[in-house]
Design a protein around this nucleic acid. Structure first.
Length: 469
RNA sequence: GGCGUGUUGCCCAAGUGGUCUAAGGGGACGGUCUGCAAAACCGUUAUUCGUCGGUUCAAAUCCGACACACGCCUCCA
């Protein structure tokens, strides 16, 4: 099946063809580890996860790199403020990041290179740029990239530098740049950096932000690779600068497909670290939401659309997931029953086919989810009319396994049963007895009581089930 | 000032020239089932896609203008 992605560089959908047959080399911009990543960050990482899983679903092997930016203005500033060495300070957030990724069921990338572990590679790359005449040294021994030397500068973001505002403020430490948009490849040490510095041919200092991605992508993926992703805010200047550095140094195309994830907004407002209106994954978990619920909300809108995150949406995700779980429990019961039923493979194959082709079309998750919900409804219909046999139930469960290889939100492997506290169980038994003797007044009273305790009773002909509200 | 994006039912959200009297989810309402509920299922809920104009045999989909919202041009995914 053809896969197509919207390529930011060309601003249109393009058929995806990897450089090497069936192998996809992909670079995904990772976190700056100076704080807990927020759900806006995770929207981007989940987009990348869906991308990765979709490629794998369609038979590709993915080699993914995600960088960890563990040295920059903010990590230095905050570690000094906290009085903790940089390495130790960032480790806390690196660990937290992996914990959160794990909770959200994000597949592991092949490489998570840290910037501080690749200073040598960056220095080598900067040297190349200096030798080739793309970079210059300022009075304070910083090295800047001269965008006027790279005539394609602005091609990704479609920015014509001659037309830009020259910026209301220019940092005092950038006074000696040739042009305002020139960016640092190497920053000479100053006292604000404390004891954070590395030796270089230009004296002690530290790398600029953009250079790590050029150096590390080259090391792990080669000079030209297939896909580069990130949040849309990374498009300019970060990705533009990466292109300038990489293509100037290597004299060849940097990336074949650029994919950018739109913002997540919260209750209609832009969310960013600097505005402080952010939720972290751990915030939401401590409010009682599950990682699956969070994942469901964050993947449920197509990546190129703004996603408006609300608590309502989170609550709705709980309801949706619950109805799937109910179906899985019912299917598992039918499988155990070994009974005969109607053939289902035609209808299941249709929905599975639609699911795969929807995602192959620039990750159209909405259309893919429509298939998932359609199969949910069709399955419930078959169960309600008692037409579903154990063979059919197995086929349906297999289809949901197939969906979940990309969605990663279902709990399919075991029948999911809630822990029922003894006192709740006792009340429910009492109610069941009352109901059997047709003492409906008592039965209804206990049901109400249970509901207030957070449990819903569902009656069946000669049984009942308990579910958490 | 430059560049760019969006506007689809009560809410979320697909669809980007004919199969659209517009997928899917949520909500609301009515029904089936049930002692009553819950769950599940069925039905109803946009002849219409921000506004106006144009192109076309044909437009939510293309073009233009306008309105509103938002983003980037400041090391925020």
């Amino acid at each position: 099946m053809d896969i197509q992605f919207f390529d930011t560089m060309e601003r249109k959908k393009r058929k995806f063809t990897p450089i090497k047959n069936k192998i996809v080399r992909m670079y995904t911009c990772g976190p700056t580890v100076y704080n807990f990543a927020h759900i806006g960050n995770f929207r981007a990482y989940l987009f990348e996860d869906i991308l990765r899983r979709t490629l794998e679903y369609h038979g590709y092997k993915v080699i993914q790199v995600m960088n960890l930016t563990d040295v920059d203005d903010k990590t230095i500033r905050d570690s000094i403020a906290a009085g903790i060495p940089l390495k130790e300070y960032t480790k806390k957030y690196v660990d937290a990041f992996f914990e959160d990724l794990n909770k959200l069921n994000v597949e592991k990338a092949e490489y998570y290179p840290a910037a501080t572990a690749h200073i040598e590679e960056m220095i080598t790359l900067i040297q190349t740029l200096v030798e080739k005449g793309y970079a210059y040294k300022s009075e304070d021994n910083s090295i800047y990239f001269s965008i006027s030397k790279f005539k394609d500068y602005g091609k990704l973001a479609r920015i014509d530098m001659d037309n830009q505002r020259s910026g209301a403020r220019v940092n005092s430490d950038e006074y000696d740049k040739d042009s305002v948009a020139d960016f640092a490849l190497w920053k000479a040490w100053d006292e604000r950096d404390g004891n954070v510095w590395w030796d270089s041919p230009w004296g002690k200092g530290r790398p600029g932000w953009h250079i790590e991605c050029s150096a590390m992508s080259m090391k792990y993926l080669g000079k030209t690779f297939d896909i580069h992703t990130g949040g849309i805010d990374n498009m300019f200047p970060h990705h533009e600068d990466e292109i300038a550095q990489s293509e100037s140094a290597n004299g060849q195309k940097f990336v074949n497909y650029w994919m950018h994830c739109e913002y997540l907004i919260v209750d209609g407002l832009k969310m960013s670290k600097s505005m402080g209106n952010f939720y972290t994954v751990r915030d939401l978990i401590s409010k009682g939401y599950t990682p699956q619920e969070i994942r469901w909300v964050l993947i449920s809108a197509q990546y190129r659309r703004k996603l408006n995150f609300t608590m309502d949406a989170l609550k709705h995700s709980r309801e949706s997931l619950k109805s799937f779980q109910t179906l899985f429990n019912n299917l598992n019961e039918i499988i155990k029953s070994k009974k005969d039923g109607k053939p289902v493979s035609d209808i299941v194959n249709d929905y599975v086919g639609n699911f795969g082709s929807a995602l192959a079309d620039d990750l159209n998750i909405s259309e893919a989810l429509a298939s998932v919900f359609n199969l949910l409804r069709e399955s419930n219909k078959l169960i309600a009319s008692e037409e579903l046999g154990s063979k059919g139930a197995e086929i349906i469960i297999a289809a949901f396994h197939n969906f979940d290889s990309i969605l990663g939100v279902f709990n399919l492997d075991e029948t999911h049963e809630e822990e029922i506290p003894a006192d709740i169980k006792k009340l429910a038994e009492e109610r069941f007895a009352a109901r059997r003797t047709k003492d409906f007044a008592k039965s209804d009273a206990i049901r109400k009581q249970l509901s207030e305790l957070g449990w819903t009773v569902e009656d069946k002909a000669n049984a009942y089930t308990l579910k958490k509200n």
